[in-house]
């Protein structure tokens, strides 16, 4: 018995080792192939992008510093005027932040309803869950610039088109994130409230919202950070705020670089400031959850 088992073990071991090695080789081959495809894609993609660009990568590489250097040197020459310019552009900054804040607020309210109506177990009309999910997908898929450009054509330039555009995208994006949180919510409070005859809005307000509020607020703050950037970019295509001022001062070219520098400083400062602020509050919110 023992002899037989001893005799058979090495052969079994060999087979296992062979198949293991074969598996490892196959996996390495696949991994290598995937890496090769990836490298080829990156290289050819880079070449195509380089070909279709107005200036080449290698010829432009040493010029990267030129524009910032021009802006900085001119701003340094006129450094005495810089505080005045910052004051001048401060209202534009306020507008950019306001666009982000309002659109986050409206988008969060929209996302709240989309998420509650699109989550199994919570929805008011369970049959319509797929509809609300598709609505939220559609709103998420439309880039802000599409809605903003169309609305600028209809409503004229200004903060409102940007606000609506960002709010729509935010509602879709938050709707998805919110509903992922809401799926994990405990349904017992909802059932308890339902047994007392509470209406749907009461069940949501008293049963679900207290559970999900920290996560919702945390996601909304993260969106706010993203939306500040989006609102600055949309300003560049004509939707008011800091981006609009930046485009104007860029269009003037040299001689107005001090204005561009002031706007760069304001934008950079704002983004960093709100990033820090929101990450501090988000940390506090998620820590509070652990208790």
């Amino acid at each position: 018995m023992t002899d037989a088992s001893l005799g058979s073990t090495p052969r079994g071991l060999d087979a296992i080792r062979d198949s293991y090695m074969a598996q490892v080789h196959r996996r390495r081959l696949y991994g290598g192939l995937a890496l090769l495809i990836f490298v080829v894609l990156m290289a050819s993609g880079f070449n195509i992008a380089d070909d279709r660009n107005a200036g080449g990568f290698w010829s432009g590489l040493h010029q990267i510093g030129d524009y910032p250097a021009d802006v900085l040197s001119e701003a340094w020459e006129k450094r005495a005027e810089l505080p005045g310019l910052i004051v001048k552009f401060f209202p534009a900054l306020v507008e950019t932040v306001n666009i982000a804040a309002v659109s986050t607020l409206i988008g969060a309210i929209g996302g709240l309803f989309l998420s509650l109506l699109g989550t199994r177990g919570l929805a008011k009309w369970p049959r319509l869950i797929p509809l609300f999910r598709r609505i939220s997908d559609m709103m998420r898929a439309v880039p802000e610039i599409v809605i903003a450009l169309v609305l600028i054509f209809v409503l004229g330039g200004g903060p409102v088109p940007a606000m609506i555009a960002i709010a729509i995208h935010t509602a879709g994006a938050l709707g998805k994130m919110f509903s992922e949180v809401a799926e994990n919510a405990d349904l017992k409070p909802v059932e308890g409230l339902a047994s007392t005859g509470a209406t749907w809005s009461q069940r949501m307000l008293l049963g679900v919202l207290p559970q999900v509020a920290p996560n919702y607020v945390s996601y909304a703050l993260l969106r706010f950070e993203i939306n500040i950037r989006a609102s600055a970019i949309l300003g560049f295509v004509g939707a008011g705020g800091l981006g609009y001022e930046l485009r104007n001062s860029m269009a003037w070219g040299p001689g107005r670089f001090d204005e561009a520098a002031a706007i760069f400083i304001l934008l950079f400062g704002t983004i960093v400031f709100f990033d820090q602020l929101s990450s501090r509050y988000r940390n506090r919110l998620t820590e509070g959850q652990g208790q």
Partner: peptide
């Protein structure tokens, strides 16, 4: 400013 308009930028 350095690379001109295009996808690479």
């Amino acid at each position: 400013r350095a690379f001109g308009p295009g996808p690479l930028t």
